[in-house]
Write a protein that binds this DNA or RNA. Structure first.
Length: 302
RNA sequence: GGACGGGUGGGUGAGUGGUUAAAGCCAACAGACUGUAAAUCUGUCACGCCUUGCGCGUUACGAAGGUUCGAAUCCUUCCCCGUCCA
């Protein structure tokens, strides 16, 4: 299995396509937003017409108002990869969601899934008394509480949820290990082009999205009946367009914010991938012809 | 030529005698991340030093002087910038 990782806008899709084409592969998406239907322009989803007949998996698999998680991703990606291998083809995992990739290869701990009802209760409690969840967590699991910052409510909540549901401290469950993926030789590439150039590209791409139908896409999604509170609307680009439509931002203001958030996101992705073990660094954009050659050679020697 | 307003750290912009190496925001940089992760959160951000301490020293709020125990903050002169009047 080959993995093409990297920050947004580094040319992963293009590289993956070339690699898959050259080596008889099929692409498995590893992007937390491309799994949603109708969110196309802002997620830079490769149009079907540009896929050159190469199968792309795990794209457009859930509706915008459905909850999709890293655990769900991990399960489905494993099934998909197994299927591709069984057909004698090469799985080419491609995406920028480091957490999903880790859930896929390293696995998650064995524990309870999220519980909406419990979360609602916990959320209400936190709202009434900010900080109370973290204090509660430190009673159940001192270790976990020490590792999670009190301000990081989502992580505090998940830890607490697990403790309550499993009747065991999360940190104890962590110690049991993760259900890592086995049976595949995996070579992972991380695209890491010059940061300045990447940022310029991202800014330009973001502008193109705004000019190229992002706003209409948002209107369309809303017209299908999906609420603005749907998860994928929280992502940069979409969030700003929503604010634009609501009169909170001007067009220029929305664009600038979207660009800024995209840059920040790219930065965070780089931080993540820097910690990713055993990766092959590619100090360039994936749509660079020389890079394709270089990567193919490295895969061949693997 | 005259009348006001203003010149603050990479940017913006607070601060109008001490608790200010100077809020906030932006930019930049570093980091965390075990089921909504394009999310969420943390740290650094004048320079040097070490015994890394709510440590020491140096430099800093257009420039130069002055007042004061003490000035980004008050006074004087000068240099810029903006608006208005001639």
């Amino acid at each position: 299995m080959v993995a093409i990782l990297g920050a947004t806008g580094t040319g992963k899709s293009s590289l993956a396509l070339n690699v898959a084409e050259a080596l008889g592969g099929e692409i498995v998406n590893c992007d937390s937003l491309q799994v949603f239907r109708h969110f196309d322009i802002g997620t830079a989803k490769l149009p079907v017409s540009d896929r050159r007949g190469i199968p792309h998996h795990l794209i457009d698999i859930v509706n915008p108002d459905e909850i999709f998680t890293a655990g769900e991703y991990s399960r489905r990606a494993r099934e998909t990869i197994a299927g591709i291998s069984a057909r004698g083809r090469l799985p080419v995992v491609c995406g920028g969601t480091g957490f999903y990739f880790r859930a896929l290869v390293a696995g998650l701990f064995e524990g309870p899934e999220r519980d909406a009802a419990l979360r609602e209760r916990l959320g209400a409690r936190e709202k009434r008394r900010p900080g109370s969840l973290h204090r509660l967590l430190s009673r159940f699991d001192r270790d976990a509480a020490g590792r999670i910052h009190p301000h990081d409510v989502p992580k505090v909540m998940r830890a607490l949820e697990v403790c309550l549901l499993a009747q065991r401290p999360v940190s104890a469950l962590f110690r049991d290990g993760r259900n890592a993926l086995r049976g595949y030789r995996t070579i992972r590439f991380v695209l890491q082009p010059d940061r300045e150039r990447l940022y310029q590209r991202l800014d330009a791409r973001c502008r193109q999205m705004f000019q190229g139908g992002l706003i209409d896409e948002v209107r369309h999604i809303l017209s299908l009946g999906y609420p603005p509170s749907a998860k994928p609307f929280e992502s940069h680009g979409y969030k700003q367009v929503l604010q634009l439509l609501g009169g909170e931002l001007t067009l220029e203001g929305a664009l600038e914010l979207a660009q800024r958030n995209t840059r920040r996101y790219a930065k965070r992705q780089m931080t993540w991938f820097r910690q990713e073990p055993g990766v092959e660094w590619v100090p360039n954009f994936g749509d660079d012809a020389a890079v394709v050659q270089d990567v193919l050679v490295r895969v061949a020697g693997f």
